[in-house]
Design a protein around this nucleic acid. Structure first.
Lengths: 133, 133
DNA sequence: ACTTAAAGGATAATTATTATCTTTTAATAA
DNA sequence: TTATTAAAAGATAATAATTATCCTTTAAGT
C-alpha cells in the first residue's frame, strides 16, 4: 500500500487523513463516482461532509492530481492522473477499465488537415466486459 | 430548410411547433447545449418553459432522434443522430465540430484481445480550432 | 368539427454542486 | 514539545441543474 503523503504535498495538498483515504480508494478502485466515493468514505469517517468530498475532488482536479472521465449514459468517474490512455466502459456492470491504445496514426491524420491543433484526446469504448459476456 | 415533420413522426414524436423549432436549431447549429437551446427558443416562443426543453431533449434521446455528446471540461452538447463520427472541441471558443475518423484498426485491435466486446466508441479531440489559431 | 392522448406551461420538488461560517488540524518554526 | 497559523473539515445554507406534478392547450386521427 503506497503512502501518498509526499505525493499529495508535491501537488500543494496537505496530507490530511481524509485525503489520504480518498487517494487510497482511488488507487485501489481505479475509477469511482462522487457518490460511490462518498459512500466508501462515510464508512471510514462517519462524520465526513459531502462538501469535503467535493472540495477535495475539485482541488485535486485543479492540481492535476486526478482527472475526470466522462462516460456516455453514465456518471463521471475520477482517476489518479497517469500517462495518457483510453477507457473501456461496460454497459452492463458499469465497470471502467483503462486501456492503452496508440492513437498516433489518427492524430497525425488530423494534424495533416491543418485545420485543428489537437492537444488531448478522450476515447471511451462502450460495450460488454469479459465478466458480463 | 428541411421539414422535419415526418421525421419526427417516424420517431413517434408529435410534430409540435416547439419540436420543429428545436429540430431546426439543431440542424442549423449542429451542436448546442441545453442552456443555449433554451435561450434561442425563448426568442421564438417567449413563454416556453425550460421543462419543455428538458422533456423534449429527453424524449428525443430516448427515441434516438438525437445524441448527447459529453465534452471534457465543458457542458454536454446535443446533435441530431447521424452516422458514427468523432468530435473536435475547441478549448478556446468552445466550438464543436464533427469529424469522420476511421477507428476500424483500433476496434479490431481491441477485438483481438477478446476481453471486451465493443458496441460503440466516443472520441473527442480537444485543442484549438482553425479560427482560434 | 369532435375526441383524446400527448404536449406545453407554470411551478414545486428533487438532486447535484458550491458557498459560507465556525471549529479543528497539519505543517512549520520557536 | 508547544505555539502559531493558514488551510481543511464539518455543518448547513444557497445555488444550479434536472425532474415531477398538475392543469391547460393542441396535434392527429376519426
Amino acid at each position: 500500500m503506497i503512502n501518498y503523503t509526499n505525493i499529495l504535498r508535491q501537488h500543494n495538498l496537505k496530507a490530511t487523513p481524509q485525503r489520504l483515504a480518498i487517494t487510497d480508494i482511488l488507487h485501489v478502485q481505479g475509477h469511482i463516482t462522487i457518490e460511490s466515493l462518498y459512500e466508501v468514505m462515510v464508512k471510514k469517517f462517519s462524520s465526513i461532509s459531502l462538501a469535503t468530498i467535493y472540495k477535495n475532488i475539485n482541488l485535486m482536479l485543479e492540481n492535476s492530481f486526478i482527472q475526470e472521465v466522462k462516460i456516455p449514459h453514465a456518471k463521471s468517474v475520477y482517476e489518479i492522473t497517469k500517462e495518457s490512455h483510453s477507457h473501456l466502459a461496460c454497459e452492463k456492470c458499469g465497470e471502467i477499465q483503462d486501456i492503452i491504445i496508440d492513437l498516433d496514426n489518427i492524430l497525425n491524420e488530423v494534424a495533416k488537415t491543418n485545420t485543428f491543433k489537437v492537444n488531448s484526446s478522450d476515447l471511451v469504448l462502450s460495450g460488454i466486459c469479459k465478466n458480463c459476456q
